[in-house]
Write a protein that binds this DNA or RNA. Structure first.
Length: 475
RNA sequence: CGGGGUGUGGCUCAGUUUGGUAGAGCGCUACGUUCGGGACGUAGAGGCCGCGUGUUCGAAUCACGUCACCCCGACCA
């Protein structure tokens, strides 16, 4: 704990990128390793990931997901089986060409994602309609040879989960694709207090090898978008490439229909950039490794630590920490604020004399004097309130930074001056999507499920519009 | 992968122009006084200057190479 504590972080208004970097370092989420693009996730950062894993995994299993573990190496021949997929990923795979000092007969890629391995497995274990569906998931790391990297947002190796399913029918696959997107978005809103826009990716933005990609997009504090989770419907494309067939009830051979879906440690970047402030991280109570910290004032004075310990015991079903280190109170305040602890209880001799404590909220900074008799209930309620308020605040911020444009001039003006989402109509043509990227500097984030009619015509070419699209600058 | 920047105790940086063998503040350790928003005093510890090669009597400083990190773009979870 020797580092950095006395330096304030860069203000987010002054330099958002530097603010982000300061937080990941000073809140002790990560340390840089000596390896390009690979970060060390420190205990505090990993605790956040564990909380995410635990909750997501629970939600997965409620929908019938089973966990497996796949090899981290993929033989080149296997990766090459599906044309779009290999073309999409080839530029960013790492290859193992030697083992034990010998050159390999066939080189192995370090998985950038595991569709091919799951397909290979399914081709072996699926034979009858009775074997379906297969709803597998794995928690693992993957490697993508990225050109530039940022902690959590884009690293060469990152942690994630990847779900891969095989179904008898197209309808069932589509249902599962949407189901998992909903699991993600509900999780993000209820657990991480991050409101999501759900929708479909344009063909340009969809996953290599997919028929359709669905996404949830969040808006960061600086007005940039972050793709926070994706769910893909593969149709039967991979099934044809990998020969995954089953015999149906009528004794006819059919190809399976598949899906895949993933959420990565990138979502920790979203937590930071949606909720954080100039004092550091702000964590929603649900995901916070420490939900309540008790800071004793003049802790060697009689009765202070004893009272603090009693308070801790009364809240022991929560994640409570009593900070009785010999730092000054002010130091502890700043320290726990940097780590985003949602609630702080201050307790000193004066409080004890008057039978109360001071309760401070991390999200608003508000301090309240609470009777010791009511403290337990007060804190429990406060955690719920904070969780709710944080979602509400994030939603307001997003809505306040969501704009509409009906023509190119408007859109250019907004994109240049008002960071955020831009809702605009689109004709469905790739040329217009490319042109908006070129001229306006925005990419399509998604075609939301909740469509609105902003106007009749495409914001770019003026022809008849097919759908409303969220546009923006993205991480 | 292009463009820009940075590597000197744990952290932030000075020193590099003009080569002479390393400094400051913070942090850290011990003791004491403190404690309601990053306390104070006293005494200490800690660095072959990212790495490599070269030039030189002599390199943190000059040259070449290399690695890593940061920022901005193009591509991705």
């Amino acid at each position: 704990m020797a580092d950095l504590k006395n330096d304030a972080i860069t203000s987010m208004d002054e330099d958002f990128a530097q603010w982000y970097t300061d937080i990941v370092k000073k809140a002790e989420l990560i340390e840089y390793s000596g390896i390009k693009g690979c970060m060390i996730i420190r205990p505090f950062g990993y605790a956040i990931w564990e909380a995410i894993q635990k909750e997501l995994d629970r939600r997965f299993k409620e929908t019938g997901v089973e966990n497996v573990y796949m090899p981290m190496f993929i033989p080149e021949s296997l990766l090459n089986k599906e044309k779009d997929h290999v073309e999409g990923f080839a530029p960013e795979v790492a290859w193992v060409t030697m083992g034990g000092g010998e050159t390999l007969q066939e080189r192995l890629c370090v998985r950038p994602t595991s569709e091919t391995l799951f397909c290979d497995l399914y081709s072996k274990i699926v034979g009858s309609y009775r074997d379906l569906p297969k709803v597998y998931n794995q928690w693992c790391s993957v490697v993508r040879w990225e050109k530039t990297t940022r902690p959590f947002l884009r690293s060469m190796e990152f942690l994630w989960q990847e779900g891969h399913t095989a179904h008898a029918t197209e309808e069932e696959a589509q249902e599962r694709t949407i189901q998992m997107l909903n699991v993600y978005a509900d999780f993000a809103e209820e657990f991480l207090a991050i409101p999501m826009i759900k929708g479909r990716k344009t063909d340009k933005e969809k996953f290599a090898g997919a028929n359709a990609t669905y996404t949830m997009e969040a808006l960061m504090h600086d007005g940039k978008a972050l793709q926070s989770g994706t769910s893909h419907n593969f149709g039967d494309g991979f099934a044809h490439a990998f020969d995954i067939k089953y015999t149906d009830k009528n004794n006819k051979l059919q190809y399976v229909h598949q899906t895949s879906w993933g959420v990565s440690t990138r979502i920790i970047g979203a937590i930071i950039m949606v909720h954080g402030d100039n004092n550091g991280l702000v964590l929603p109570p649900m995901v916070a490794p420490t939900q309540v910290v008790i800071v004793p004032i003049r802790q060697q004075a009689e009765g202070v630590l004893e009272t603090a310990a009693k308070i801790k015991t009364s809240l022991s079903d929560l994640r409570v920490k009593l900070d009785d280190s010999d730092r000054s109170p002010g130091w502890k305040f700043a320290e726990h604020e940097m780590h985003g602890v949602p609630v702080r209880i201050e307790i000193g001799p004066k409080d004890i004399q008057e039978n109360h404590a001071v309760v401070a909220r991390r999200d608003t900074g508000e301090k309240t004097v609470v009777s010791l008799d009511e403290l337990e209930n007060y804190v429990r309620e406060l955690l719920k309130t904070i969780q709710k308020d944080m979602l509400e605040r994030a939603r307001k911020h997003r809505d306040a930074h969501t704009y509409e444009a009906t023509n190119l001039e408007e859109m250019t003006e907004i994109a240049a001056n008002k960071p955020g989402f831009i809702k605009a109509m689109w004709c469905g043509e790739r040329e217009c999507e490319d042109a908006l990227k070129e001229k306006v500097g925005v990419t399509s984030r998604c075609m939301p499920f909740e469509q609105e009619k902003i106007s009749e015509n495409c914001v770019c070419c003026g022809k008849k519009a097919k759908s409303m699209v969220y546009w923006g600058k993205a991480y």
